[in-house]
Amino acid sequence: MFTAFVFYLFAAVALAGALFVVLQRNPVYSALALILTLFAVSGLFFLLNTPFIGILQILVYAGAIMVLYLFVIMLLNLSREESILRAHRLQRVVGTLLGGLLLVVVAAVAIRQAGPGAPGSVPGAAPGTAEAVGRALFSDFLFPFEMASILLLAAIVGAIVMAKEDLR
């Protein structure tokens, strides 16, 4: 009962925030709404018994990535209102229709195929601890982990090259 209440609360906040991100004209408000959604999703991670990922979500997404967004929005002074009507009308209608269609299909599959079992219904060790993630990361997934660090390095170099004013 309590779980259901918390789930619906977080779900409602996440969906409302997500809609705000898309429908808000001012990028600053969009970013704030996205932060709200990220928190709600993080709350769902806690509900799913994976606190490590939940806190990681707040630490990386809310603590660093979204600050970067706000930083760029302010740096470029993009906060003036952008008219949502500037997109082609057809594009909007078709986009929304296709999105709705996808939602219906995916939701139908999710409801029909996933079955009734509740998440975390399997008794035993909780999978979401930092220890479990760490052990898996540094044994079975060591190679992808190293690849991820190379990806990050490439991203750092790329970002600096791209954003630097006078490279020559």
Binding site: F52, I55, L56, I58, L59, A62, G63, A64, A130
Partner: peptide, 8 residues
């Protein structure tokens, strides 16, 4: 991690 996340 909690303290780092919250203070950030």
């Amino acid at each position: 991690l909690y303290v780092l996340a919250i203070t950030s």
